[in-house]
Amino acid sequence: MLAALTGLGLSTAAGLNAYIPLLVVGVLANFTDAVKLPDGYAWLSNWGVLAVIAVLLVAEVVLDKVPVVDSVNDAVQTAVRPVSGGVVFSATSAAAELDHSTWMTENPWAGWLIGIVLAAAVHALKSAARPVVNAGTAGVGGPVVSTVEDAGSLGLSLIAVFLPLLVLVVLLAGALLAWMTLRRVRRHRAARRARSAHPPG
């Protein structure tokens, strides 16, 4: 159960930033016993791979702070973040250990699928909310929100590894935030359609 929570937490973090949970898992696998990579995932602890991930992370952090560019970056990340979610879910042995299920062990694709779907859902919410934030704050709010997302991804990645039970609390809080954000996005779109249908003057 704890392994499953770790995988869920890391996949959620990947939806916010594809590279932070990958880097956390890889570095912790090298320096601690908190992460034990299963067969086939040793590459994730390779320092050359981690260096590439670190470079991509820096680029992501910078690009996601620039209004308009952040939306383009989100479009590119539509493929990257879900894949990252699948990798980190599976790489933490969550799929093999989920409820000690032999079915999960014999069907490793299930761990990938769970991670991909969860990361994709978080990414979709993030991508839908960012234009609303940029439009509502004249671009000023984008970098602030992006910084909060990066910090959230790092914090959730560490919680998922070291305090997996707290992942449940974080996911519930995230679901509430997602519901509130979706309501705001819908109101913004409705207001924009109303303005288009009834232009001033």
Rank of each mutant, 00 (worst) to 15 (best):
residue 29 A to M: 10
residue 30 N to C: 12
residue 31 F to M: 11
residue 31 F to R: 07
residue 32 T to E: 10
residue 36 K to Y: 05
residue 36 K to V: 15
residue 39 D to S: 12
residue 44 L to Q: 14
residue 45 S to N: 10
residue 46 N to V: 01
residue 48 G to R: 08
residue 50 L to A: 07
residue 51 A to C: 07
residue 51 A to K: 00
residue 52 V to A: 15
residue 57 L to N: 09
residue 57 L to W: 13
residue 58 V to F: 10
residue 59 A to T: 01
residue 62 V to R: 12
residue 64 D to N: 14
residue 64 D to M: 09
residue 67 P to K: 09
residue 70 D to F: 02
residue 72 V to A: 15
residue 74 D to C: 01
residue 75 A to M: 10
residue 78 T to P: 06
residue 79 A to R: 04
residue 81 R to H: 06
residue 83 V to T: 12
residue 85 G to Y: 00
residue 86 G to D: 04
residue 87 V to T: 06
residue 87 V to Y: 04
residue 88 V to S: 02
residue 88 V to I: 05
residue 89 F to P: 05
residue 94 A to N: 06
residue 96 A to K: 09
residue 98 L to F: 15
residue 102 T to R: 15
residue 103 W to R: 07
residue 103 W to M: 10
residue 108 P to I: 08
residue 109 W to I: 14
residue 110 A to K: 14
residue 110 A to V: 15
residue 116 I to G: 08
residue 117 V to L: 15
residue 123 H to F: 03
residue 124 A to L: 09
residue 130 R to H: 11
residue 130 R to K: 15
residue 132 V to N: 00
residue 135 A to T: 10
residue 135 A to W: 04
residue 136 G to T: 11
residue 138 A to P: 05
residue 138 A to I: 08
residue 141 G to I: 04
residue 141 G to E: 00
residue 143 P to Q: 02
residue 143 P to I: 01
residue 149 E to W: 00
residue 149 E to V: 02
residue 149 E to A: 07
residue 150 D to W: 01
residue 151 A to P: 04
residue 151 A to M: 13
residue 152 G to W: 00
residue 153 S to W: 03
residue 155 G to N: 08
residue 156 L to V: 06
residue 160 A to F: 05
residue 160 A to P: 07
residue 160 A to L: 07
residue 161 V to S: 06
residue 161 V to F: 01
residue 163 L to T: 15
residue 164 P to A: 07
residue 166 L to G: 11
